[in-house]
Design a binder for these strands. Structure first.
Length: 429
DNA sequence: TTCTATGATTTTAT
DNA sequence: ATAAAATCATAGAA
């Protein structure tokens, strides 16, 4: 009806081409003169068709003429009235803009993957620098930087595309807004409507944007899966790293649970991550416990490795300890894993020094050395047997309800070769 | 190729 | 959250 009205106005005002007869303009009631109306419509269609052929100037001129028409205010008010009625339904129909869950999901993922988030570290430049810096250090970092480089690539594409879309969207929006503003001189257009129009445009564009995001997500997923595969291809730690880890493990055999700080330090020393350290210790503990026999040799090796320094340190510590604080033979826990173990250690030290010794007053540092020593003692055999240490171990060995202690002790069981005496003297030195 | 070692992941329990 | 245990998957040796 509005179209008719407009067309009618147009015709009425200017008897455009073909000089058609005026239909009584906006009386807007159907029925009545059916024939005439059909004719009108035909004319109007014709009119519209010809309009497309007109030049811009002509159209401009017509618009101007329309604006100057004497009937314009009246017609305008009629249009306002009509709008008044139709506007209600429109207003009711809109207003909701539930954030698309799909889009949200994509957004979240892109953000999580660092594609849409703030550019970190200068992007490709940083990645390249990292790659260059890592050089031949490790395959892992190379893979990692490779991954990052690819991610940056995706990221760049994503951003440029997004920018393009945004630009296009803005252009289109302003274009439409201009158009509407222009038209608002001819027909009533509320700001709300413009807003709505803009909203529609944005929605349209966001669907395009979603496609972009979707494909970006896919690309990231593919890259990621490839990277994960690569990461699954584990590389053994360097010999040096294993060495360090083993040293720690065997020198803390009674409590091989490095603290967070210790883990960090180990990670740094081994140039691996903290979680890798955790993994390593997790694996080591369980595997050691599962088959101690298999680890005997290794244990010996590392125990012996630290035994000399440990012995010195312990001696010093004990000396120190003795002089500083003579006794307090209770409360066995020295930060050790469990009580039985503390007792264990206590006995060992007693035997070693032939003197009373309180685990409770020895720092963790000493404890590790004690572990080492004890291990050497146990490994080399005779000592505990000779001194009845075995009887001490066995019960503790058995009573362990899943604790770490039952793992440490069997070492005393496997005790081959070597003369007890020599061992004793060695370790006590 | 098979077999073992080993780093990582998953499951389960606390 | 952390640890144990089970399991996976590959590296590397045989």
């Amino acid at each position: 009806r509005m179209l008719q009205t407009l067309a009618g106005v147009n015709l009425a005002g200017h008897s455009v081409q073909g000089g058609m007869a005026l239909p009584p303009p906006p009386h807007g009631h159907e029925g009545a003169d059916g024939d005439g109306r059909k004719q009108d419509i035909g004319d109007i269609l014709h009119q519209i068709m010809t309009i497309t052929d007109q030049s811009l100037d002509e159209a401009q001129a017509k618009k101007h003429a329309l604006n100057c028409h004497r009937m314009k205010p009246a017609l305008f008010s009629v249009l306002c009235e009509i709008k008044e009625k139709t506007g209600l339904s429109i207003r009711g129909a809109q207003e909701e803009d539930p954030p698309d869950p799909q889009l949200m999901r994509l957004d979240n993922m892109l953000l999580a993957e660092g594609v849409s988030g703030p550019e970190k570290g200068g992007g490709s430049a940083a990645a390249a620098a990292a790659a260059a810096a890592s050089g031949g250090s490790s395959d892992n970092s190379i893979e990692h930087s490779d991954y990052r480089a690819k991610l940056t690539q995706i990221r760049q594409i994503y951003h440029t595309e997004l920018e393009k879309y945004e630009q296009a969207c803005n252009e289109f929006t302003t274009h439409v807004m201009n158009l509407l503003r222009e038209q608002s001189r001819t027909r009533p257009i509320s700001p709300k409507e413009i807003e709505r129009m803009v909203g529609i445009i944005h929605r349209k564009f966001s669907s395009i944007q979603m496609q972009l995001k979707q494909s970006t997500c896919e690309a990231v997923m593919i890259l990621r899966s490839r990277f994960l595969d690569a990461r699954r291809k584990r590389r053994n730690f360097s010999k040096q790293a294993t060495e360090i880890l083993n040293e720690y493990f065997y020198s803390h055999l009674s409590n091989p649970y490095p603290s967070e700080e210790a883990k960090e330090e180990l990670a740094k020393k081994c140039s691996i991550t903290v979680s890798q350290v955790s993994n390593w210790f997790g694996n080591k503990r369980i595997r050691y416990k599962k088959n101690i026999g298999k680890f005997q040799e290794e244990a010996n090796l590392y125990a012996a490795k630290t035994a000399v320094t440990a012995a010195h340190a312990v001696a010093a510590a004990v000396q120190n300890n003795q002089t500083n604080s003579p006794t307090t033979p209770n409360s066995g826990s020295s930060g050790s894993f469990n009580l039985p173990n503390s007792g264990d250690m206590f006995m060992n030290m007693q035997s070693l020094n032939g003197d009373s010794y309180q685990g409770s007053q020895v720092g963790a540092n000493v404890q590790s050395q004690v572990d080492t020593l004890r291990h050497v003692i146990n490994q080399t055999g005779g000592y505990s047997d000779g001194l009845g240490g075995n009887s001490l171990y066995s019960p503790h060995n058995l009573n362990a309800n899943g604790g770490w202690q039952d793992a440490t002790t069997p070492s005393s069981v496997t005790s081959p070769t070597e003369g007890p005496g020599s061992v004793h003297s060695d370790t006590s030195n």
